[in-house]
Amino acid sequence: MTAFLWRYSPLFLIAAAWEIAPRSGMLDAALLPPFSEVMAAMARLIIDPGLYVHAAASLMREIAGLGLAVVVGVGLGIVMAWYAPVRILVNPLVRCIYPMPKSALIPVMIMWLGLGHLAKIGLIFMGCLLPVIVSSYNAARGVETVLIWSAQNAGASRREILTEIVLPASMPEILSGVRTALALSFVLLVSSEFLMAREGLGYMIAFLGEGGIYDAMFATVLLVSGIGFAADRAYLAFTRRALAWRA
């Protein structure tokens, strides 16, 4: 407990500075409401059912878009690594499109899918697809050939080798690629909700900011950052579980 407190003590220092700076007039309180006021606004938000409507909308988009990207991306990546014709056709395209800054897709998604849920899901799906494909492809390509040879020698079919050898052996790298996609999905979610939404946590931040309700805006910004952080930690715990057999 004391170790925990010591580790996170800088955060208390920052909170204290955040409280003192606007109160003492060092910083304009209009630009940075004191920390206690932000926390009070956070408490008001948490008991307000409106927050949960926005959070549910965001969460639904996030899970649908990322889930789809993971399923399609892992599948495509492994198929690309496993079947030469697919690799020759698709790999150069993936390499060519992969470096595109994914946020450039936002206006296209607005034109194609409008301003509702579908546009955000489509954006997260398209944006996260390439990192997942590339990491799954690299993972499956990197499986030690000795493993595959010995399985072949032991009489395993191509299909068995794929499901019993290649997939488990490439799991660590696939999972770390999905972690990258998870972080990207939050960026795309919040960005698209800033730009084109009537609900969602990103929309809430933009709306509160435009309305000049800065204590609640800061509270929501902290909340969204906290959700991103918590999602990453939960995902890490999940990967440790999923890879426990390797130890």
């Binding site: 955060l11 919040v190 931040i205 509160l208 950052s225 991103g228």
Partner: peptide, 18 residues
Amino acid sequence: DPIVSIGFPAPKIAFLPV
């Protein structure tokens, strides 16, 4: 350390209005 360990996975774009 605590700032980076929280800030690294958080979606920083949420601070855009700030």
